[in-house]
Design a protein around this nucleic acid. Structure first.
Length: 396
DNA sequence: AAGTTCTTATTAC
DNA sequence: CTAACGGTAATAAGAACTT
């Protein structure tokens, strides 16, 4: 059964919201992210407006570097509450367009519009890709334009939409439609795009793209492929499934399928959260136990709060520690699974296991004591100054 | 030998 | 001097450890 999947991607989301809230910033370089602290900040850029991108500023760039590239940019802190609210408003609009929708992140969503017949405003329903001579106009294109228009009118924000026969192609179409960086030369240019890839166009669409444009291929995988002279998806397709599996395991098989535009992933309403965590980077590396444990206590409290709102019980505790030089390590402890045994008596619990969890209050005490034990081990066995500490728990 | 747990690596937003 | 590099979450792989 052929599907029609739509991917919605808000344009420079955080920065665009700030621009909307402060019209005097319009067209100016806006950088939403960590405090640059006169170039000494340790965080990164969350989102940069397109006029900021002209200076080479982009998401995930160290904020110190961004400051260096454009000290006069408008640097704003991340106002997550606001972005969350705006995101909810947008999702309210999105889900009106199909009962089969999925939120990916604050600024991204998928819609499966395969079964949407006779959608209002389209002559023959949204269930079709455009026919000859109506590129961007007929069928699902009309629906997409309507969605874009509604978001613009209600939220005053632009977005880019990609459409294809599956999630993979829809996402890549949106990515392609939105010139990633400085390609928009006009000040304050907004991508505001729409790209439809029909099933018979998938091959032609994919082959000239860079391997790193394929979701799942990041810098590391791309580097390995480049060594063997594979730069474009077309070249990637020359590798057999077995070969890819040899090099990259399960991921390799996925890459094989994706390079051919094959993706059967369903649009699913909600993912179940499997773990929650919190981490903190110090302003400067430290060995001061006061600072370290005070911060860690706050992290524990925070996780405790998160847990209590979600049923409060966990299986595994992982403590993360990053030392000077970005050297990162983890230590974890897992509660033993209920020992199902052939009628014998209860076995002694292993020394290395977590005590059995009973109720929220006790869970919290265990979380506190066990996580601190793990952190302490780090301090004992590694004398380096500490850059970051974190805590993560697997929920059960 | 099989099943768990621990740790690291990679990806993505 | 070539690095500068947050926070949150998922998943895979292999080693180490238990049963």
């Amino acid at each position: 059964m052929e599907r029609i999947i739509l991917h919605l991607d808000m344009d420079y989301f955080f920065a665009q919201i700030e621009e909307r809230e402060n019209p005097q910033f319009k067209g100016k370089p806006i950088v939403v992210g960590a405090d640059p602290k006169e170039g000494k900040g340790r965080g990164v850029v969350s989102t940069a407006s397109y006029s900021a991108r002209k200076y080479g500023i982009h998401s995930a760039l160290p904020i110190s570097k961004a400051y260096e590239l454009c000290p006069n940019a408008i640097f704003l802190p991340v106002n997550m509450e606001l972005y969350q609210k705006v995101s909810e408003n947008i999702m309210e609009i999105v889900k009106k367009y199909s009962p089969k929708w999925e939120t990916v992140s604050l600024d991204e969503a998928y819609l499966d519009v395969s079964f949407l017949k006779g959608y209002k405003g389209t002559k023959r329903g949204a269930t079709s890709f455009p026919r000859k001579g109506e590129e961007g106009g007929g069928g699902v294109g009309v629906l997409a334009e309507k969605l874009k228009k509604e978001i613009l009118e209600k939220e005053k924000l632009t977005c880019t939409v990609g459409i294809g026969p599956n999630k993979l192609i829809a996402k890549m179409a949106a990515e392609k439609a939105k010139p990633r960086s400085e390609l928009c030369s006009t000040t304050g240019a907004k991508p505001n795009g729409l790209l439809i890839i029909k099933p018979n166009q998938v091959e032609k669409f994919l082959e000239p793209l860079d391997i790193e444009d394929l979701p799942g291929i990041g810098p590391k995988t791309a580097e390995k492929l480049r060594i063997i002279r594979i730069n474009k998806i077309k070249e990637l397709k020359k590798l057999s499934k077995a070969k890819l599996k040899d090099i990259f395991g399960v991921v390799g098989e996925t890459i094989y399928e994706r390079a051919r535009g094959i993706d059967e992933e369903e649009v699913i309403p909600e993912e179940i959260i499997k773990s929650i965590g919190k981490e903190h980077t110090f302003e400067r590396d430290t060995r001061d136990p006061e600072i370290i444990f005070k911060t860690f206590d706050e992290i524990i409290e925070e996780i405790g709060r998160g847990l209590s709102s979600a049923n409060f019980s966990f299986k595994t505790i992982t403590v993360i520690c990053r030392f000077s030089g970005f050297e990162t390590h983890t230590k974890s402890k897992t509660e033993p699974r209920p020992l199902k045994m052939g009628g014998a008596k209860v076995k002694m619990r292993m020394k290395s296991s977590l005590p059995t969890l009973k109720n929220p209050t006790q869970d919290f005490e265990i979380l506190k004591s066990e996580s601190k034990k793990l952190l302490l081990k780090f301090l004992i066995e590694n004398p380096k100054p500490i850059r970051l500490i974190g805590l993560r728990v697997r929920i059960c």
